[in-house]
Design a protein around this nucleic acid. Structure first.
Lengths: 335, 335
DNA sequence: TTCCGGTATGAAAACGTTGTCAAGTTCGTT
DNA sequence: AACGAACTTGACAACGTTTTCATACCGGAA
């Protein structure tokens, strides 16, 4: 691995000059520039990013903390984050926090020890004070997917209230009156936002969700299976259900099919996330699409700005991205 | 962020001593060690890994190159790789090569510029000479999932021939005679291995797969959909199909269900990979399970050994991990 | 007492960069 | 002809570590 010293020697110039050429910065005469560039080409020289980071505090590296990896949502986030990072010349170092505060802490420590340029958090434990600690170090940090209420830390999330509202309106217009919903854990703010948007809009449309039709679960397939069984034990099924994740919806679908309940003939089903599976199951799931690509784009934009100008503050600290409904087979109008 | 200098000052010792204490290496008196350790504790000092890497060529970082990210298989690999990396104190930097040689090259360049300790490749383009280039730099490199034929670069893959054989035997014992298979792209070695294991074993059992029952596809859902449509146009359907990936199997299932073909009553279906979806669809998929966890464990083991002792060579350059069949609902015996 | 081997410590060089500063050059202006 | 301004270049000090190498100390053997 050639170093800047080798290039300098071979090109017959000083180290400083090589540095200037490769960082493309200052004034250097065309002839010398060409000579250096040629040597760089020949030797395949690449600046050692560790040295660069050590000296100039920018290693072109950003950390991404996720609560889970084998999960369509987060795989999608990784994918778009990697894409954006690549586009902007950053490397991406990923950690799985597993929703465990201890691992969160350890991973952040590691990122700090590596002197990453910035950190993107997807879902911190709500209680965590980690983002503050990071902030103190002066590192740009952005929270995506699960916003936090904080004056100075930018969050990017879906307009969850709006999503709930949208689904509620679709249900109302479809003539549904016996409506159920399976939510994620109510401790999570985004769950409550979705729930409020959904329930308030139904209320406005003259429909109340019965308590036994309002079931709390987790976002996983298994959660959906459990919730489905619970619903099947009731006197009568609702005509439409909104599940706060596609995994939940798939779980519901699975137990309904096992029980001979037809979707959407007996009960309509709408999921959320629009993950790949939603189009693979039969019937294909109607689902609320969140633009994770947009999340990542915005996150990197903010990071990039803050890196250029440390005093930069995004215009609003909480960005809410609108979502949309992807219509497939699992929902039908009653009328 | 306190530096080793700060710790030294606060503890009233030299930089060297602090270094010795934190790297836990040489002889240092208990009293001084304790004093240093306490200061480390109080200040929250963490060694700057960039500096360490610069000086001692070990940044505790390994690179993972994947052809795709939004894909259950690779998400699973990321998950286990992250877990192993974490366990052994490494950071993990991930890149999506998208099966594009140019991006592969660029990513590897980036890893080299970051002076990672080792590289794990999941699927190189078969043509690529990248691994050799990496090898020249003296970096440990391991290829997983899609082995390459190479004297000195260790590969870890499933015993694909064995997998094909296993499925074939299950089909034979189940009394199936009209058998089809949907494979991945035949350019890929692992596809040919699976295919050979499958076909040769059937042959041995007196069954020949008709040419129109032997369809080549890609590993994705869409490939399965296409293949399914193709099969439906034939005079008669096979009684059992092996799909070389679960995504293919799900695609087949989808079009079969749309066409009113019942699984497993009319046709049995077996997938491969045992990804999470396989248990979520109805009927749940019987699938060949590959132990990606084992892949990652072995990969890190080899890397670790090579890092400790650069002359270390794994006993065999191509490791084949046995697979197993997970029985679910999509397969039934004819007899 | 003298000397020697081991142990505990510190000073200083190196790793590969960037950025500051100063020193030449060149060229246009007065 | 003289004087700056602007441009081009190189020396050198960091950045935070690890790793020699040297030094000081201590106790035991001769």
């Amino acid at each position: 691995m050639p170093s800047i010293r080798d290039v300098a020697r071979l090109a017959g110039v000083s180290i400083s000059t090589v540095s200037r050429v490769v960082s493309g910065s200052a004034n250097v005469e065309k002839s010398t520039r060409d000579r250096v560039l040629q040597v760089v080409e020949e030797t395949g020289y690449r600046p050692n990013l560790n040295a660069r980071s050590l000296r100039s505090r920018s290693g072109q590296l950003v950390g991404l903390a996720l609560p889970k990896i084998v999960h369509d949502t987060f795989a999608t986030i990784i994918h778009h984050a990697e894409k954006e990072a690549n586009r902007m010349g950053y490397g991406l170092i990923i950690g799985n926090t597993n929703d465990d505060p201890e691992r969160e802490r350890a991973f952040i420590q590691d990122l700090l020890a590596r002197h990453v340029d910035a950190i993107i958090f997807s879902r911190v434990s709500d209680a965590s004070h980690l983002p503050d600690r990071v902030r103190e170090r002066g590192l740009p940090i952005v929270v995506i997917d699960r916003g936090i209420e904080h004056d100075s830390i930018p969050s990017i999330e879906t307009d969850n209230y709006g999503a709930g509202k949208m689904v509620a309106n679709m249900f109302l217009q479809g003539g549904h009156r016996r409506i159920a919903t399976v939510t994620g854990p109510q401790i999570v703010k985004l769950v409550r936002d979705r729930d409020r948007g959904f329930l308030e809009t139904l209320e406005k449309g003259g429909v109340t969700v019965a308590p036994e039709y309002h079931v709390e679960s987790n976002f996983e397939y298994e959660g959906g299976v459990l919730a489905g069984k619970q619903l099947l034990e009731l006197e009568s099924l609702p005509t439409a259900i909104w599940a706060q994740s596609d995994m939940i919806a798939v779980g519901l679908l699975k137990v309904f099919q096992a029980a001979g309940v037809r979707v959407p003939d007996d009960v309509s089903l709408v999921g959320m996330d629009n993950v790949p599976v939603s189009k693979m199951v039969t019937p294909a799931l109607t689902s609320v699409d969140q633009s994770f690509e947009e999340f990542c784009r915005r996150a990197f934009y903010i990071i990039h700005e803050q890196l250029e100008d440390p005093t930069y503050q995004p215009p609003e600290t909480l960005v809410q991205i609108p979502s949309s409904i992807v219509i497939r087979e699992s929902f039908r109008n009653l009328t």
